[in-house]
């Protein structure tokens, strides 16, 4: 069900949300979190679609804040989507004029009470997410440095402004690699002496993976530039010979160990909806990310 509201108020939106809930037989009853998306007109379609896919796993009230031209008078347009095969509700909020500087005043009244808040910047990355008006009220603040024009600089900036509860989708992208590496290390008896992470240039996931490996194994790891896509190889140097996981096609990886047959394992690159779903699974601070992010910029971790 779609409700379009032009030049409206938050009170009217609230009333409309309650009304759609009644008419749909209460689809918002199972909502487990509020997801605020900071986006623009060009990115909103993809972002909202990803959020509603992730919403199948985590039914949420999605509030997509779309900043429009800041000149002219303040105006609020809203579009409420409910049902349509996904649990929860989605509200697209278009903010015009001076109001666009005060998005928090629009979002606050629309949050489901007593339910956690996650803010996702799909687009511009604020230097200090937790200092943003819509970052303050969130348990988790999600950015995506892979979409930044200069990912390495963006990571460094996030690192400087890190607060527990921040997270970045480029870290989420590393999870399948990290699980496979952890499982591989379970089987190794030789100590690992060092290694290499091969990936395309400007890949923040590879940067984070490299510092994570260095930090956990306490041996040097270096970055190697490849054609991609994404991360293409991780090589662990051990006394008994190198252990490599290579994934040249972004789909299937090959695990090679000395004296053992090669093994294949599906390691496909995931879409945004999958990443977001993983991100929403835990709402407490990800300390391992915090440590890795600190190491990326070569500064010590923020004390809690």
């Amino acid at each position: 069900m779609l409700t379009d509201m032009t030049d409206t108020t938050t009170a009217d939106i609230r009333a409309a949300l309650a009304r759609t809930r009644d008419q749909m037989g209460g689809p918002a009853t199972g909502v487990v979190l509020n997801l605020i998306i900071m986006t623009d007109e060009s990115g909103q379609h993809d972002a909202v679609r990803a959020a509603s896919q992730a919403g199948r796993e985590h039914p949420c009230r999605v509030l997509a804040v779309i900043a429009r031209e800041s000149r002219g008078p303040s105006r609020l347009d809203a579009e409420i989507r409910s049902g349509e095969g996904t649990p929860g509700q989605t509200v697209l909020l278009r903010l015009y004029g001076p109001m666009s500087e005060h998005a928090d005043s629009v979002v606050m009244p629309l949050l489901v009470p007593d339910t956690p808040v996650v803010t996702w910047w799909h687009g511009l990355i604020p230097a200090v997410p937790s200092a943003q008006p819509l970052g303050v009220l969130a348990q988790r603040r999600v950015t995506d440095t892979a979409r930044a024009r200069a990912p390495a600089e963006a990571l460094a900036a996030l690192s400087a402004g890190y607060r527990p509860g921040d997270t970045d989708l480029s870290w989420t992208r590393a999870t399948p690699w990290r699980s496979l590496l952890a499982a591989t290390a379970d089987q190794l008896t030789d100590p690992i002496l060092g290694g290499v992470v091969g990936a395309e240039e400007h890949n923040p996931t590879a940067d984070l993976l490299t510092v994570w490996l260095t930090g956990r194994l306490r041996v040097p790891f270096s970055r190697e530039v490849s054609e991609g896509p994404g991360i293409t190889e991780v090589r662990l140097t051990a006394a008994g010979g190198d252990v490599t996981i290579s994934r040249p096609d972004g789909r299937v990886a090959t695990l090679s160990r000395p004296g053992q047959p090669d093994r294949h394992v599906a390691l496909h690159r995931r879409d945004i909806a999958d990443l977001l779903a993983e991100e929403l699974r835990r709402l407490d601070p990800d300390e391992v990310y915090g440590e890795s992010l600190a190491a990326v910029a070569g500064i010590p971790a923020v004390a809690e």
């Binding site: 989420t172 999870t175 990290r178 699980s179 290390a185 379970d186 490996l213 093994r263 993983e278 391992v288």
Partner: peptide, 21 residues
């Protein structure tokens, strides 16, 4: 068995995985 440094109880993104079998 030597603990695996890549496993960290705080790291809850890494799932439990079976060994080769």
């Amino acid at each position: 068995m030597r603990p695996n440094p890549l496993r960290d109880p705080r790291d809850r993104r890494i799932p439990r995985l079976a060994g080769p079998c």
